[in-house]
Amino acid sequence: MSLDPATVRRIARLARIHVEDAEAAQLAGELNGILAWIEQLNEVDVEGIDPLTGAAQMAMRLRPDVVTDGGIPELVLGNAPDRAGAFYSVPKVVE
């Protein structure tokens, strides 16, 4: 599997990272180098193996339904690059 600059641009769009056209070709080269190296995994026989998602081998704990958080609008808004009163503010979204 090999990435062309068009695919790089599609991936960059998905990741919301602006990529200049000139950059796309170079990135394609770098990413292809990494992917080619990764492809050594195709040698491994994984027939019948269950995928391992994480290292923690336990079931999930459930917390009680109690309100323990929130009520801190100044703290959750305090780092915002742009805010309007009690709201976060972003360039207008047109649907």
Binding site: H18, L77, P91
Partner: peptide
Amino acid sequence: DGVRFGRRVDGNDLLEMYERTRA
């Protein structure tokens, strides 16, 4: 993504703001 904390680089619309901020 430049919305709630950290650095934001402005853009003409939300998509451009995201892409510039992250680039």
